[in-house]
């Protein structure tokens, strides 16, 4: 009995990781196409029809590139950093409900678990920065660390409103409660929370306009300056999985998860995937539009604006809840 469950779990795990990594690969293609067209370019067109094999080619190239380790690097940490990043991000996937029947681990503290794991990912980044023994990497790592800590608070607080309305931290139950709510999605009653979530989502994943940890113009490539080949691609994958995880949280907590205006037969995860890709498109769209924030502006925005706003949202939600009941 236990053994059967174990093999089933393993198969589920392998399929999940593979599917997500494929999505990561094609998210890069999607990003390059979207940003290309927004800048009136074409994006990848050469490898395969419409450049569709470009991610595969990139993967092969990165895999076979030389793995350079700086002489002054702290080797064990240098090796461990990208793995910490990737593992932390991959383990977030376990609690995400893609449709009512597909969730690897149906935890009661799903949301908190994701926070815990994404805060760990910042360790990978900061250790990469330190272990590389290069000033660019180090500055990138430090920036990333302070940014992630600051915005995690705002993000956690923005989701408290959702927790209050649902009364649960189980992601499946959040979606179910949302379907039963008058609007069907929490983005409307929780619009302040949604706004705070979206901004801190961008900051948490180190995306433009908050991409200070890897600001090309100042820091070469930030914390992954000294990384090359497959180790660099692990960081890259971690970043994109992070984006997918954040998009999933947004979908689950604010946009109604797998529920849609009508049910699509045979593809229960259709709406979930669509919403994730809508949010991913938003990531790329913002990247194509906005310039980078200055560091002190970033901190001001996080501490002086988003956190008070999220706290006000909690207060408002509590008030509304007591008034309505």
């Amino acid at each position: 009995m236990a053994e059967i469950n174990f093999t089933k779990l393993l198969v589920h795990l392998v399929v999940l990781v593979d599917v997500v990594l494929l999505h990561v690969a094609y998210a890069t293609y999607f990003e390059r196409k979207v940003i290309g067209h927004m800048q009136m370019r074409m994006g990848p067109t050469r490898v395969g029809p419409m450049g569709l094999l470009q991610p595969i080619a990139d993967g092969i190239k990165l895999f076979f590139k030389e793995d350079i380790i700086p002489a002054a690097a702290d080797r064990p940490l240098f090796y461990a950093a990208p793995i910490i990043c990737l593992v932390a991000m991959l383990s977030c996937l376990a609690v995400l409900p893609f449709d009512p029947n597909h969730v690897l681990a149906d935890l009661n503290i799903g949301l908190i678990f994701i926070f815990a794991m994404s805060s760990l990912a910042s360790y990978g980044v900061v250790l990469a920065g330190w272990a590389s023994n290069s000033k660019y990497s180090f500055l990138g790592g430090m920036r990333s660390m302070s940014q992630v800590i600051s915005y995690e608070i705002a993000m956690g607080l923005s989701l408290v409103g959702v927790m209050m309305m649902t009364g649960s931290l189980n992601l499946g139950q959040i979606v179910a409660a949302q379907a039963a709510s008058p609007f069907g999605i929490y983005a409307i009653p929780q619009f302040i929370g949604f706004f705070v979530f979206v901004v801190s989502m961008l900051a948490e994943t180190n995306r433009v306009p908050f991409d200070l940890p890897e600001a090309e113009t100042e820091l070469v490539a930030g914390y992954c300056t000294e990384y090359s080949g497959i180790r660099f691609s692990l960081f890259f994958m971690a970043e994109y999985i992070g984006m997918i995880v954040m998009a999933s949280i947004g979908t689950i907590c604010f946009l109604g998860g797998w529920n849609g205006p009508f049910t699509v037969p045979y593809v229960p995860f259709f709406w979930f995937l669509l919403k994730i890709y809508a949010i991913m498109f938003f990531f790329f769209w913002v990247r194509a539009t906005l310039p980078r924030y200055r560091y002190d502006q970033l901190m001001d925005l996080g501490w002086k604006f988003l956190i008070p706003l999220a706290l006000a949202n909690i207060l408002l939600t509590g008030l509304m809840k007591t008034v309505l009941e």
Binding site: I109, F115, A116, S119, L120, S122, V126, M142, M145, I149
Partner: peptide, 25 residues
């Protein structure tokens, strides 16, 4: 105590230890 476990990681590992790391750096 799953909640406590998660909070242990978020607060201690995710915040306090990072600040220690800051100081060490």
């Amino acid at each position: 105590a799953e909640f406590l476990a998660a909070v242990q990681i978020i607060v201690y590992a995710g915040a306090i230890l990072v600040l220690y790391l800051f100081v060490v750096f």
